[in-house]
């Protein structure tokens, strides 16, 4: 049943990229436990607006856990304490009245902070641009059923393809690595015959791009997998390692 709680929020406030940021403390009373985390932030922002203060900037869009736009570190954990949800799907009933929540932006050398909790994740786009696709033009493609794909293989590809590109993996990796993100796309395409054609070039190019963006090195700490809102497995990283090794040995 819904009830209401009172919270103390410590939120990272930073006016713009070049400014110094700090944690600001806010108190928020009568928060319905049916609210989502982002709705709680909406309420805070309405309150700040009415007090003539600057509302907290945060990214969000679909609010149903699929667009990958939202995300923050809540008490040290990306997307908060619940498993396999994004911040917009985290409901306030998972917190207790009197809790103090520390809310910080996703941080990585490759994710500059733009304002408050709002960051620039275009490095992830550039990784995809370097080869995260099958190079086919529109039109002239063979019939969809011309190449049978084992159902299991398609399911595995779908497991990897479920990535929403939110960047939680990077934010919670102790080394700020983007391996889970990169491996998810490489795995998806490596598992499908359509993607295997240029699999080697893809692995080399995407890893090179990932490294040049300033992401850290993977040390198999598994934090990425633990916070991924879509439950993407580090088995994909193992697959990427295999793909990369064979690519390097034969093509690199």
């Amino acid at each position: 049943m819904s009830s209401s709680i009172n919270l103390t929020l410590k939120i990272w406030r930073q006016p713009h990229s070049d400014a110094l940021g700090s944690l600001e403390t806010y108190t928020l009373d009568h928060i319905s436990t049916d609210m989502s985390f982002l709705e709680m932030l909406d309420v805070l922002n309405e309150k700040l607006t009415k007090e003539g203060k600057d509302p907290v900037a945060f990214d969000h869009d679909c609010r149903e856990g699929i667009c990958g736009m939202c995300g923050a570190i809540v008490d040290g954990v990306a997307h908060g304490p619940e498993k396999e949800v994004t911040l917009c799907q985290l409901h306030m009933r998972h917190f207790k009245s009197g809790d103090t929540l520390v809310i910080e932006p996703f941080r990585s050398r490759a994710f500059p902070i733009k304002k408050d909790l709002l960051i620039d994740r275009s490095a992830l786009d550039r990784i995809i641009q370097s080869g995260g696709y099958v190079s086919v033009n529109t039109g002239g493609t063979p019939d969809g059923n011309s190449i049978p794909i084992p159902a299991k293989q398609a399911e595995l590809a779908m497991d990897a393809a479920a990535c929403i590109g939110c960047g939680a993996c990077v934010a919670s990796c102790p080394n700020g690595a983007a391996m889970l993100f990169t491996s998810a796309k490489i795995s998806q395409l490596a598992l499908l015959p359509q993607g295997q054609v240029e699999g080697k070039e893809r692995a080399l190019a995407m890893v090179a791009q990932m490294d040049s963006e300033g992401f850290g090195n993977c040390t198999n700490a598994r934090e990425c997998e633990a916070v991924c809102p879509k439950g993407i497995s580090i088995r994909n990283i193992a697959r990427l390692n295999r793909e990369y090794l064979t690519a390097v040995l034969s093509e690199g």
Binding site: Y133, V134, T141, I147, A151, A154, E155, M158, A161, Q194
Partner: peptide
């Protein structure tokens, strides 16, 4: 399909 969309099979 050619783009590698993992449709159900």
């Amino acid at each position: 399909v050619a783009q590698g969309v993992p449709f159900a099979r």
